[in-house]
Amino acid sequence: MAAGGDHGSPDSYRSPLASRYASPEMCFVFSDRYKFRTWRQLWLWLAEAEQTLGLPITDEQIQEMKSNLENIDFKMAAEEEKRLRHDVMAHVHTFGHCCPKAAGIIHLGATSCYVGDNTDLIILRNALDLLLPKLARVISRLADFAKERASLPTLGFTHFQPAQLTTVGKRCCLWIQDLCMDLQNLKRVRDDLRFRGVKGTTGTQASFLQLFEGDDHKVEQLDKMVTEKAGFKRAFIITGQTYTRKVDIEVLSVLASLGASVHKICTDIRLLANLKEMEEPFEKQQIGSSAMPYKRNPMRSERCCSLARHLMTLVMDPLQTASVQWFERTLDDSANRRICLAEAFLTADTILNTLQNISEGLVVYPKVIERRIRQELPFMATENIIMAMVKAGGSRQDCHEKIRVLSQQAASVVKQEGGDNDLIERIQVDAYFSPIHSQLDHLLDPSSFTGRASQQVQRFLEEEVYPLLKPYESVMKVKAELCL
């Protein structure tokens, strides 16, 4: 049975990233139509530049190519590739079939990587351009969430054990800070992308030097003109047959890092959902379990974690691919890159769409948070109580021993009897502590235990987050809708 299948058929496997999760716009960027249309555009740009620099290419040939950029006979191309065992030459023939007058000058002087690699770089750039505003929107939604809850005390956790208090907004800023680093890295790697350009079979530009009869300047002009037509500021000066596969490492490393950030955020949300302090959106008709109707599973956060793990592992592909590119190139890269580049971007696209949807509907339960604080705060307040007693004339050592005994009794009630923490009640009825009984409410005010959390939130948002989001103001209103 021949390899390949009808990918629109229910009898043929289709990647869930495309069929179930990723956005239509990201799927289109990695589609065959987008790819092969870009090949034709690159052939047109090459012909236009070659004509401008004096090669015998007519206006009629150029116009014929322009008129057929979208006229792609995919069936013919597939048949040609089956016959020739070469995808680029299959599309040269297919393009030439609908451009008979231009057929002889299509791909003039070029090698397969002229269309293959340059198209990949265009796709990487455009895919990054799709991700950047999506990530900015996630940051914006979380920034709104953090600002609104900047002063809401909550129990902090280290080692997932109760620690000092923080605020809900401050905790959210930990998430935002990681995503801001990801946004900066995505922008950097996007701006650092260079075009492969017009380089020939081993990167020496020998074929173009021959076409222009040894004119170095025209060869350099050709490279520059096509690079500018493709919208790049610069091209690699040095290439082998391909652009260095280190570029793929750079791009997928940034995406993998984004995956790590999203995994951490969504894990926190899942843990908070278990504590009943916070939940992701839950639709009115949504079913959490087929057997347990009360369940409210954090399905979206779980999906993000599941896909983020996949995204983090994909960076190993370009690392290994770059390491086995012998001399000017081997074909070890080809099949692998067809999979890992598309999957990385479709996965990143999915987790950003999902995280935006989550961040637009996060639900906080202040009463649950308050109750958990009441359970733990008495123990945390013991040092403040000791200091207040010393100020009232008591002995630190005597007070410490009193607190120690009462704390152990209260802990026994919590752990052995399943009761509430009654340390404060014990202190309130103990005559030894009568000098500070009137101060206990103040000493137990949760806001006095959150330090500068709310001020940190305000400063972080104003100095770091809002300036970073400013270039994306025009796209901030787009909502994230999930079908599944």
Rank of each mutant, 00 (worst) to 15 (best):
A3K: 15
G4C: 15
H7W: 08
S9M: 13
P10F: 07
S12L: 14
S12Y: 15
P16E: 05
S19G: 10
R20S: 00
Y21D: 02
Y21T: 02
Y21S: 03
A22C: 10
A22S: 14
S23V: 13
S23I: 07
P24D: 08
E25F: 11
F28W: 06
F30T: 06
F30S: 04
D32T: 10
D32K: 07
D32E: 09
K35I: 09
K35C: 09
F36P: 02
F36L: 14
T38V: 08
R40M: 00
R40K: 05
L42G: 00
W43Y: 06
L44W: 06
L46E: 05
L46R: 02
A47H: 04
E48T: 07
E50M: 08
E50R: 01
Q51M: 07
T52A: 09
G54T: 00
L55R: 07
P56W: 03
P56L: 09
E60M: 02
Q63E: 04
E64A: 08
K66P: 04
L69E: 11
M76E: 14
E79Q: 09
R83E: 07
L84K: 07
D87Q: 02
D87G: 05
H91D: 01
V92C: 08
H93S: 09
T94I: 12
T94M: 12
C98I: 09
C98A: 12
P100F: 00
A102E: 01
A103G: 12
A103Y: 09
G104T: 11
I105R: 14
I105Y: 04
I105P: 05
A110K: 00
C113P: 12
Y114S: 07
V115G: 05
G116Y: 00
G116K: 01
D117S: 03
D117T: 00
T119Y: 09
D120M: 07
L121H: 05
I122L: 09
L124C: 04
R125Y: 03
R125M: 11
N126L: 06
D129G: 15
D129I: 15
L132P: 09
P133C: 15
P133Y: 12
K134L: 06
L135I: 13
L135R: 01
L135F: 07
R137P: 14
S140G: 12
S140I: 09
R141W: 11
D144T: 11
D144Q: 15
F145P: 02
E148P: 03
R149C: 13
S151I: 10
P153Q: 03
T154C: 06
L155A: 04
L155Q: 04
G156K: 02
G156Q: 00
F157M: 07
T158D: 00
F160I: 09
P162H: 04
Q164R: 03
L165G: 00
G169I: 01
K170W: 06
K170H: 14
R171H: 08
C172K: 03
C173F: 04
L174G: 10
L174C: 15
W175M: 02
W175Q: 00
W175Y: 12
W175K: 03
D178L: 03
D178M: 00
C180E: 03
M181Q: 11
D182M: 01
L183Q: 11
R188L: 10
V189C: 15
R190P: 02
D191H: 07
F195Y: 12
F195L: 12
R196A: 05
G197H: 00
G200A: 15
T201S: 06
T201E: 00
G203P: 00
T204C: 11
Q205L: 06
Q205R: 00
S207W: 03
S207M: 04
S207C: 14
E213P: 15
E213A: 09
G214N: 10
D216M: 09
H217D: 09
E220V: 09
Q221E: 11
K224Q: 01
M225Y: 14
K229M: 06
A230Y: 01
F232D: 01
F232A: 03
K233N: 14
F236N: 07
F236E: 09
I237G: 10
I238K: 02
I238W: 02
G240L: 00
T242M: 06
T244S: 15
R245A: 02
S253A: 10
L255S: 06
L255G: 08
A256L: 00
S257E: 10
S257H: 09
S257F: 06
L258W: 09
L258F: 08
G259Y: 04
H263V: 06
H263M: 05
K264D: 04
T267I: 13
T267F: 15
D268A: 05
D268P: 01
I269V: 09
I269G: 01
R270A: 00
L271F: 06
L272K: 04
A273D: 05
N274Q: 13
E279T: 06
P281L: 11
F282N: 15
I287E: 02
I287V: 06
I287G: 03
G288R: 03
S289D: 08
S289E: 03
S290Q: 01
P293S: 06
Y294K: 04
K295G: 00
K295M: 06
R296M: 15
N297S: 01
N297K: 02
M299R: 01
R300E: 05
E302S: 02
C304W: 02
L307W: 07
A308V: 04
R309E: 07
L311W: 00
L311Q: 15
M312V: 09
V315Y: 08
M316V: 09
D317H: 07
D317S: 07
P318L: 05
L319D: 00
Q320L: 09
Q320M: 02
T321Y: 10
Q325F: 04
W326Q: 09
F327Y: 13
R329I: 00
D332M: 01
D332Q: 03
S334I: 04
A335P: 03
A335H: 06
R338E: 02
I339S: 10
L341C: 14
A342R: 10
A344G: 07
F345C: 10
D349T: 07
D349P: 01
I351C: 06
I351S: 07
N353T: 09
T354M: 10
T354N: 11
L355F: 14
I358T: 13
I358H: 00
E360S: 02
G361L: 13
P366C: 04
V368N: 03
I369M: 10
E370D: 15
R372Q: 03
Q375D: 03
F379S: 04
F379K: 00
F379R: 04
M380T: 01
M380V: 01
A381G: 04
T382L: 05
T382S: 11
E383F: 02
I386D: 03
G393S: 05
G394R: 06
R396D: 04
Q397S: 14
Q397F: 02
D398E: 06
E401H: 09
I403T: 09
V405H: 05
S407P: 07
Q409T: 11
A410H: 07
S412Q: 10
V413L: 09
V414N: 04
G419P: 02
L423C: 03
L423S: 06
I424L: 11
E425V: 07
V429C: 10
A431K: 13
F433E: 01
P435K: 05
P435F: 03
H437M: 07
H437N: 09
S438Q: 14
Q439R: 09
D441H: 15
D441I: 06
L443P: 00
L444P: 02
D445R: 11
D445C: 13
D445H: 10
S448V: 11
F449V: 05
F449H: 14
F449N: 05
T450L: 07
G451L: 05
R452S: 13
R452V: 13
V457L: 11
V457S: 05
R459V: 12
R459G: 14
L461F: 15
E462T: 12
V465I: 15
Y466I: 13
P467G: 10
P467R: 06
L469E: 14
K470G: 13
Y472A: 14
E473G: 14
E473M: 09
E473A: 14
S474W: 15
S474M: 08
S474G: 13
V475L: 13
V475H: 15
M476S: 15
V478M: 15
V478G: 13
V478D: 12
K479R: 14
K479V: 14
A480W: 09
E481K: 13
L482M: 15
